[in-house]
Amino acid sequence: MEEVWQAVEAFRKDMNSGDVERINAWVSDAFVGYFGYYDDVAYRIYNGEEYRSDNIQTFQSYEGKRVEFRYTDLKTSLRKPDELILTATIDFHLDSQLLTTVLAVEVFKKEQAGWMLYRQHMEHFA
């Protein structure tokens, strides 16, 4: 468990760095993401390539601004020796202003390259 928690904390640190190359390095090629926090559609599904591409566009739009993701862990479970499921709420701040809070379910899976973000489900948290 210690090894995967170190990876999760490193991932979160990279998220808050705004360095999209480091962020995208965490995304598994087998990644699938389900995101239900858009205004124009109920949800979107991303594969790894689409998610990394969207991250590049998104973080470019944040250039010159301070990005902060504040995680509040709710529950964790080691589903298999190589898969950690965690649930959290994430407060997204841009230049110290809270923009949204989401409920997230994330699965980190140990692959040859190390622990990777394998699945992610996010939706608005009321």
Rank of each mutant, 00 (worst) to 15 (best):
Y34V: 14
V32H: 00
G18P: 04
Y43V: 04
E63P: 00
F11A: 07
A30S: 13
L99W: 04
S17R: 08
Q97Y: 00
S53D: 14
Q60V: 05
D39W: 05
N16I: 03
V32T: 04
E21S: 06
E83L: 12
L86K: 13
Y37N: 14
E50A: 15
I23E: 05
V102S: 07
R22N: 04
T100C: 08
A30K: 13
Y46R: 10
V67S: 04
V20P: 05
N24Q: 10
D19N: 15
I23A: 07
R52N: 06
I56D: 06
A10W: 01
D29F: 05
V27F: 03
K13P: 08
G18L: 10
V20L: 04
Y71C: 09
Y34S: 03
A25Y: 02
Y46G: 03
I85Y: 13
L74Q: 12
F59G: 02
S17Y: 12
L74Y: 02
Y71G: 04
Q60A: 09
S28V: 04
Y43F: 11
L86T: 09
V27L: 06
I56L: 10
L94Y: 00
T100R: 11
Y71E: 01
H93A: 11
K65L: 01
T72N: 14
Y34W: 14
N47C: 13
Y62H: 10
S28N: 07
E68V: 00
W26V: 10
V102C: 03
V67G: 02
V27M: 05
R22T: 05
D54N: 13
S28H: 09
F59P: 01
V102Q: 03
S77F: 12
L94K: 00
T87G: 02
Y46M: 03
S61W: 08
F35H: 12
S96V: 01
E21H: 04
K65E: 00
S61L: 11
K13T: 14
T89V: 05
V32D: 00
K75Q: 14
T89G: 01
G48R: 04
F92C: 05
A30H: 12
L74S: 08
G36F: 03
E63F: 01
R79C: 13
V41Q: 07
Q57Y: 08
Y71A: 13
G36D: 03
L86S: 07
Y51N: 11
A10Q: 10
Y43C: 06
G33Q: 01
G36S: 06
Y51E: 11
Y51S: 12
A10S: 08
D40P: 03
T101P: 00
F59E: 02
D82S: 14
L86F: 15
D73A: 06
